[in-house]
Design a protein around this nucleic acid. Structure first.
Lengths: 347, 347
DNA sequence: TTGTACGCGTTATCAA
DNA sequence: TTGATAACGCGTACAA
């Protein structure tokens, strides 16, 4: 913005340091540190001049140096799966929650070529104070091992059994599915089929919700197990199997939104209409559920609350080492859309 | 694993350092450093004992300290949007490419509450040697500003005009769409509609591919512009508009897979069959295209090659500062599936 | 309000 | 093959 040509700020080879700012102003480096962090010890005028110079020199604090100096650095490491449908929402919600307490998030993905072990090692290399593990393709044993060997607090988000070694944040899968079942029963459905996808980490909770509720209602227990994956292709397979039956159920309860999408598409190809012929429910209320022409009734897994709770749980353990890990179950909310209706309205 | 109880490896408060390993073995810190990095200067026996001890103490190098000491640290910063459909695939492909040259990837997301500016500042705090910006909601001006102010090489992946300040890696959108058009024309279609979603960063290239090809074929130029978003909801809106017409086109060319999904679902609700009544093509060949019951013909945007090329381009600039930024256009490949067929086969 | 001195964990240079 | 010593950028006592 300045018109001066002398400073020649082009192509700086070395990023500006506090020492550069200090030299520029003829003051000490420590004073710059105080001024930048707004601590008492620097005059108001000094602070302003320091900030102006920092801006002009494009000063950016060296995160590594900072974490080296500080006894306890404020990094939270996050292990996640980028390609997953619902995890990015949780990841996003971690940022505001962590920043509110002055913590910085560090992301480390699990991919085909990177195991959870890789991801954790990398995060610990940055001396993260705690770890949030989303999805946890890493089994409980592995997480326990990490928690103990590196003495780092861990929060597992999404699934996994409650245990004394790390915190677990999960949605109330059993209640969410139960809500779907009761909603359908309330519409008059008596022939409900649940599609179980056991490969999905939190599958067990959701299946239990279906079985318990259908038993309580005295309805026939119709569970279709698909072992091949748990997303759209699983839904498509479920549809093929259902279409081979002599008679379709009037309602299908799916274990997640993506599987529901696969099912609905496959049914549409076979000219089965939703909800006219079959009502369908999902789980997660992910962006898939909100696709206008799918418009899926779904039990909402509150990603934002789950992310926030993960940070809260982690900070709690960080503050008092003695705090015992807990299981935090986040309530779900049934979101009713147009994929469900009374049976036989168009038959 | 050891049966000894004396060492008491429980609840280590401070992560092991090189000094700890050195003390354990009665040697100097420097020798540990050489041994761990496999550099000449340590005897074979020493190296083995150091590695064994490092393992036992769960030693993990302090990334911050390392990047503080090294003049040029081997970090590549990546700006991306977690919720996006195709970006995670690109992100995943960056890892093997970067690791092959000894570079470490650092992720920084753009979300509702975090702008590209935030993301870049954070990455530069880790003193990343270069930046890969995927999607680039940040405009060209902003990227140019960053590249100049911080003197850091940048590669923009996915879109953006070629320019002398940073490298651009993008897929050949114009050719990919042209392939779809020619495929449909080859099937006998003469009434093709293109759905343009200008909010999508690389929209211009793809639109040009349609217009040029349809003109070359001497077919009528039918372009439907949807300004509301560019994913499923945009597809649904396009479907509504098409259904209001007196006559449907026999084929619809969509600007991306997600929009195609939205369109197909909306058409299914209106009992329009794909491909019997209308053929549909997508773009990206993302996982959406492979949903069994959608089975979308789509021009494949090779995420792996794009990620690899991004790293190659960045390392090239890192090695020779003088290298002029280029535009790297990655070829597409038409993947033919069952969403396209000859017109009127079932009419 | 400002300056001096030191240490964090690592790598690099030199001499032994 | 090994060991002293310095340096990277920053934060924090403590002294002036």
């Amino acid at each position: 913005m300045t018109e001066e040509r002398d400073g020649a700020p082009i192509a700086r080879l070395r990023p500006a340091t506090m020492a550069d700012i200090a030299a520029e102003l003829g003051i000490s480096r420590q004073l710059v540190s105080l001024a930048l962090r707004g601590l008492p010890g620097a005059s108001e005028e000094t602070r302003l001049r320091v900030q102006e110079t920092a801006q002009r020199l494009a000063y950016n604090p060296h995160t590594g140096a900072r974490s080296l100096r500080q006894a306890t650095n404020r990094h939270v490491g996050v292990v996640f799966t980028p390609a997953h449908a619902t995890e990015p929402d949780i990841v996003e919600s971690l940022y505001p929650a962590a920043e509110a307490d002055g913590y910085q998030i560090l992301l480390s993905p699990v991919t085909g070529s990177r195991t959870a072990q890789h991801a954790v090692r990398e995060l610990l290399g940055f001396r993260c104070a705690g770890l949030v593990v989303i999805g946890s393709d890493a089994g409980p044993d592995q997480l326990i091992d990490i928690a103990q060997r590196f003495a780092v607090p861990i929060v597992a988000v999404g699934s996994g059994p409650a245990n004394p070694h790390y915190d677990v944040v999960r949605s109330a899968g059993e209640i969410g599915v139960a809500d779907c079942v009761r909603h359908l029963a309330g519409l008059g459905h008596t022939s409900l089929c649940y599609v179980d996808t056991p490969a999905m980490p939190p599958a067990a909770d959701r299946l239990r919700g279906f079985v318990d509720t259908i038993d309580a209602l005295g309805l026939p227990e119709d569970v279709l197990v698909v072992t091949e994956g748990y997303t759209e292709e699983a839904g498509a397979i479920a549809a093929q199997r259902l279409l081979r039956r002599a008679e379709l159920p009037t309602a299908v309860v799916m274990s997640n939104d993506q599987a529901a999408l696969g099912l609905v598409l496959a049914l549409a190809r076979a000219s089965v209409r939703v909800p006219a012929d079959v009502s369908v429910t999902g789980y997660d209320d992910s962006r898939v559920a909100r696709i206008p022409s799918l418009d899926l009734t779904s039990s909402r897994q509150d990603a934002r609350t789950m992310g926030e709770q993960a940070i809260v749980a982690l900070l709690r353990r960080l503050r008092s080492v003695a705090a015992a890990p807990q299981e935090w179950v986040i309530p779900t909310e049934l979101v009713i859309r147009s994929s469900t209706a009374s049976p036989r309205v168009a038959a």
